[in-house]
Design a protein around this nucleic acid. Structure first.
Lengths: 207, 207
DNA sequence: ATTTCACCATACGCTTCCGTATTGACATTC
DNA sequence: GAATGTCAATACGGAAGCGTATGGTGAAAT
């Protein structure tokens, strides 16, 4: 009988639990939680499920870790902003509003988050994690607005509008519509009374 | 041997293709497209997959029909609003902004739509349907704004903000936060210059 | 009364997937 | 050098699911 030598991965490409978790979040972003399958994930990572069951007790343990990881990432992203004190609150808010419209990593994070939201429709743990992160973000944005001189009651309403825009803008605003972006930001941050200032158009990059 | 009599459903409860499609959209709203499984769906509907394959060639045919059905519902909802001429544009817009925050049917529609959005991340047909519906809605909202006296360039920006709010508000605004709703609507529809008018609070109904 | 049709149930073959048990290879520890 | 630990591969059993083939039932048509 022919002796079949198993092919072990090199040390440098050995997987750890976080590699599995990240791969699972990538899969989540494309296919939703029902599409996160152990054997499919193993294929994506170039190994077999034996490795998976070394790192995780079962699929449920992976889902828990995915949620923990996502929550940590979402919270850290916020804390990083809180710790940045170099710009005025208004400038920080302006940058926050522009963030979803630039960069691939925010696009991927938005895909993961969309999938977490749907997951939350059928899983209380995911729903709780989402509610917590949403509340943290709203408080952060409202805080920046108050620091910028907006009164508290108005800041709550503007925070909701700004957060809505941040979540949705990337799917509605073409990347080259800088005038529109600026006007949206004016309406959100100020009283929207000033006239639109026209800016030079840049080449389009469709999303 | 005991003769097992198959249990046929009564005429009045016979399924047609649209019953299967509606059931599949309900399943989509909870588990995403990967969670829409023929045998699971048959169980939900109280029959077996034999019925399914009478109505549909295969699972792929069901997915096509789901998308067609969703697109039709989303478009009809808009046309119904277009045809309603009894209120002023501003009043119609006000009602549109308040719509996601009341009623169970809009909550379910939002869940279906969330799932369609994720589906669109991995399927060009779903992505195309979404882009089309989003553009129709944005044009509708911008049209109402222009009819209300807002200038065109400003209307585009406000339409984006209003549509963002409509899509997201139900998950952010507590059902009893009428002051906040009103303030959001003011900022979106007007220049947000007028002060918030306080209204009596109603008993809370958590979403 | 018989035939045809609409609609669904059942059985089968196959693939995919989960989780378990066992084995293999290499590094580390004693 | 032997034992142990880490990480992964393979094989197995069973469940879930897709699609096909066939059969059953009741209503409609002839």
């Amino acid at each position: 009988m022919e002796i079949k030598k198993p092919k072990r991965v090199a040390d440098s490409s050995k997987l750890d639990a976080s590699a599995w978790t990240q791969g699972a979040l990538d899969m989540l972003a494309k296919k939703g939680i029902a599409g996160v399958r152990v054997e499919l994930l193993a294929k994506e990572l170039g190994v077999t499920k034996g490795s998976f069951y070394w790192h995780f007790r079962d699929r449920e343990a992976l889902l828990e870790e995915m949620l923990t990881s996502w929550r940590r990432l979402a919270t850290l992203a916020l804390i990083e902003r809180l710790d940045r004190g170099e710009a005025s609150p208004a400038a920080r808010l302006q940058r926050l509003l522009r963030l979803p419209l630039v960069g691939r990593s925010s696009a991927h994070a938005a895909d993961v988050e969309l999938a977490v939201r749907l997951w939350g429709r059928d899983d209380m743990r995911a729903a709780s994690a989402l509610a917590e992160v949403d509340q943290l973000r709203l408080r952060y944005i409202a805080g920046l607005l108050v620091e910028s001189g907006v009164e508290q009651a108005d800041a709550d309403a503007r925070a909701i509008l700004a957060y809505s825009y941040i979540r949705v803008a990337a799917t509605l605003v073409p990347a080259d519509a800088l005038d529109t972006m600026s006007r949206c930001e004016e309406i959100l941050l100020n009283n929207g009374a000033s006239a639109t200032v026209r800016k030079k158009r840049t080449p389009t990059t469709p999303r």
